[in-house]
Amino acid sequence: MRIWRHRLFWPSAALVVLVAVNAIARPQFLRITLQDGELYGALIDILRNSAPLMLVALGMTIVIATRGIDLSVGAVMAVSGAVALTIIDGSGDPGATGTVLVAVVVALLVSLVLGAWNGFLVSALGIQPIVATLVLMLAGRGVALLITGGFITTVNSAPLAYIASGYLTVLPFAFIISVVVITALGLVERRTALGVLTEAVGINPEASRLAGVRSRGIIWGAYMVSGVLAGLAGIIYASNIKAADANAAGFLIELYAILAVVLGGTSLAGGKFSIAGTVIGVLIIQTLDSTILFLGVPSAQSPVFFAFVVVAVVIAQSPRTRNALRALGGARRPRAAASVQDRPKVEVAS
């Protein structure tokens, strides 16, 4: 198999090019320094700052593999942050590690319940995923606001701050969390049959059910994983700003997460998925974000760049473009491009 046919070739190439461009434009980009046994540098920042998006995008990958989508991740982040900080704020000793641990566990449990709710709507009631998760997307931030009493809860707690800004040995703790989650998901995919069963459910739910696959359980589980990971992302986000901001937490993150999944080569139609692809997708987005910031563009304007990225990627992946390229490659095929949309989907989908 030729290397450029590999599904991860283009995403990896894009990431490498992006890093190279940065390295040429600002040589300090690649510099990593060791201070007091902790690593610093632009690349390290990217790895640390990517943690929330990484977690959300990984959960999204699994949901998308089941032919679903989870729009509620941003709202779940907001709820999770609100729950955790309200507990810490209300406790007698906000600085105690025990308090923070309890807060984190409770917030993750709440996120798990929210994910289970989405899973219930999708797998038990059979509601379209976009619509089912739209409910929580709309209502979730309202719930978060109710929890914080309509305010932005701020707390001063060293163990909380550690989650986003601390170091475990030489690496940022937030990055370690990402690595642990990536490894765990990768292991589950490789070592158990969950990966292929999830793909089967995503490609043909009814055939899978009749083959004895517990489709309902797998779909339900995917939304629960997505919920928990979003909850974890919400805690990291809250830890970073040391506050629970129900409106800003995870704002538009569902869209960036979906973008990361698509960039990583996983089709939104469900089925075949790639954890590694999503990791690369997230890194592309985070590097691009850092690049835009470096260019001095106000961060509010950065969506324009992402819009162009999305357009470029979807056009590159579209069957029309591929057919056009194939035609350029030599096969004589008069009117091929013109008749593309008349062809049955099955034939162009490959």
Binding site: Q301, S302, P303, V304, F306, A307, V314, I315, V348
Partner: peptide
Amino acid sequence: TLVQYFSVQPFIASLAGLFLARGLAYV
């Protein structure tokens, strides 16, 4: 155009539109 001629899912194509319009508003 993205939806019809490039077979992009409406969700994603309009997502690109969202990013573009929001960014342009700030521009």
